[in-house]
């Protein structure tokens, strides 16, 4: 059930609120989107709401990375141990990595530029959009959220910030990924030994292949939650102002001068 039925279909809409998530077009810096694709193919696409492309690229990168031991090779390279890096990389798969990786960067950049234009057109067209929806799977409605709260929850655990602003699909992926990466990398155990001051033991238990996934996932979660909360706030104000202009500016209202009581 939607609270809005469109008599004449509009060409572009600024946003949509459904129980499965909030989708909103807004201006983005395409360079930042491309850089998130550099961090992890798929993240750039999640930022611009191309979830299916994002999923495909994400799982592809994940798979290739695992079979070629790319993270481990990165670890050796950053430590200057080039011989070991060469040894561990699987030459059967590594060439497959390059074209898709570059495609992810290029495609997310290009789509971000396109979406910026579409957003401008949608804003100028000023079409009304669904701001409240309810169905057997749940409900969702437009409301203002605090960016710093989203930031803090994402800091505590990736995906919580996305849940706060109802970006369900992104939240689900981040939640699963975080759990899989944390469990496989034994990061929690490593932190435990670091707290105890046993750094040698920590280095032994933490898995280098898996733990290198963590920084990109963690910081992507914060960035995505924070930036989308800011944009949601702007959308809320804009939509409410538009509603007031449409419904609460009667022609017969006359302003009268008088003393303040």
């Amino acid at each position: 059930m939607n609270n809005f039925r469109n008599k004449y279909r509009n060409r572009y809409y600024q946003a949509n609120f459904t129980p499965f998530g909030t989708i909103q077009l807004h201006q983005r810096n395409p360079h930042i989107v491309a850089l998130w694709s550099v961090a992890f193919p798929g993240f750039g696409h999640f930022l611009i709401h191309k979830f299916i492309t994002g999923f495909a690229l994400f799982f592809w990168e994940f798979y290739i990375n695992q079979v070629t031991h790319l993270n481990t090779a990165m670890m050796y390279s950053f430590n200057g141990d080039i011989a070991k890096a060469k040894e561990i990389l699987d030459e059967r798969y590594i060439y497959l990595y390059i074209p898709v990786y570059l495609f992810a960067i290029w495609d997310s950049y290009r789509t971000a530029v396109d979406e910026n234009m579409i957003h401008l057109l949608a804003k100028r067209e000023n079409a009304k959009f669904t701001t409240f929806s309810i169905n057997p799977f749940g409900m969702n409605f437009i409301s203002k959220k605090k960016p710093l709260v989203a930031f803090a929850w994402s800091l505590a655990f990736p995906s919580l910030g996305q849940m706060y602003i109802h970006r369900i699909i992104g939240a689900l992926l981040l939640l699963i990924m975080t759990i899989v990466v944390i469990l496989n990398s034994d990061l929690v155990e490593g932190i435990h030994y670091c707290m105890l001051g046993d750094f040698g033991r920590a280095r032994e238990v933490v898995d280098e292949q898996w733990s290198l996934y963590f920084p990109s996932i963690y910081f992507y979660g914060i960035y995505d939650a924070y930036s989308n909360t800011v944009e949601l706030g702007k959308l809320f104000s804009w939509e409410q102002a538009d509603f007031l202009k449409r419904h609460h500016q009667p022609q017969n209202f006359v302003l009268h001068k008088g003393e303040k009581i």
Binding site: N29, I32, L35, W36, A39, M74, M75, S77, F78, N79, F151, L187, G190, I191, Y193, C194, F199, G200, A202, R203, V206, E208, S211, L212, F214, P215, S216, Y218, F219, Y220, I222, Y223, Y226, S227
Partner: peptide
């Protein structure tokens, strides 16, 4: 936080990798 988080991600990845060799380990 745009630039900050990108740099945090990059330096964090390098930091984890370096940590496998340096004294304090990958987490720190």
């Amino acid at each position: 936080v745009d630039t900050a988080l990108i740099l945090a991600m990059m330096c964090g990845t390098v930091g984890v990798a370096r940590g496998f060799v340096l004294d304090w380990g990958p987490v720190f």
